[in-house]
Every structure is written in C-alpha cells, then in structure tokens.
C-alpha cells in the first residue's frame, strides 16, 4: 500500500495522456498515408532527434516523463542528447560517438532479448 501511495498519480496521468496522443499521431499517419510501420518508426525517431536537438523535446519530457521518453521520439531525444553531451566533452568526434553511446544500452538489451525466441 505504501508503494501505491508513494506514486505520483498526476504524473502517471500526464504520461498516459501525452504518450497516448503521440501514438494517435502515429495511428493517423498509418491510416491516412499508407506508410509502412518501418517508415513510421523512422519518422518518429528522426522527429524526436531533431526536436531534441532544438531543445524542444526536453520540455515535453519534463512535463510528461515516461509519456515522452517511452515512445520512439524519446529514443530520438536520447540520441541527440547523447550527441550534444559528447560534443561538449570531446568536440567534433563527440558528434559521431554520442548517439551510438546513448543507444548502446537499448540496442544491447534488445539484442539480448531475441534470445527469448530460441525457446520458442
């Protein structure tokens, strides 16, 4: 019970609404443009990266938390954040290693989890 009480329900509601709305944008793209899922995902990750680079996506993350980081735009945001941080640290070379560094964790674990298919 103490765990439930400790949760910030307002924040969860924000995440629900914002995350849901981002998905609705994707659904409209699917139904109206006949884009394949691969293209939709590319559009989302690129949009997230650009918005992240412009510094705009940060506001959405601050407002909605997981509602902004869990959709693939959040993955793009992480990439641009990683690139910018690495540029601050290493200069030009940082632009090339930052994104890959930021995505390494996710890539690694998603690569690991395909193992689950071996048990199928």
């Amino acid at each position: 019970m103490s765990f439930l009480q400790s949760l910030d329900w307002m924040q969860i509601l924000k995440a629900f609404v914002v995350g849901g709305l981002i998905c609705v944008i994707g659904q409209i793209l699917i139904d109206k443009t006949k884009l394949t899922p691969a293209r939709i995902l590319v559009i989302f990750v690129t949009t997230g990266t650009i918005l992240g680079g412009l510094g705009l996506y940060k506001y959405l993350v601050d407002f909605a938390g997981a509602g902004a980081t869990v959709p693939l735009t959040g993955f793009g945001y992480n990439l641009s954040k990683g690139a910018i941080e690495a540029v601050k640290e290493y200069g030009l070379i940082g632009a090339f290693i930052g994104g890959i560094k930021a995505s390494a964790g996710r890539n690694f674990c998603s690569s690991i989890f395909w193992l689950s298919c071996l048990f199928n």
């Binding site: 680079g53 940082g94 632009a95 994104g99 995505s103």
Partner: peptide, 15 residues
C-alpha cells in the same frame, strides 16, 4: 541508421 545519422548532424550543428 536514420536516428543516429540525425543525432550526428545535431551534434555537428550544436558544435
């Protein structure tokens, strides 16, 4: 590919 490429461009522009 597109995500990381964009992030490289973002990094360069930032620089």
């Amino acid at each position: 590919v597109f995500g990381i490429s964009t992030s490289i461009i973002v990094g360069i522009i930032y620089l």
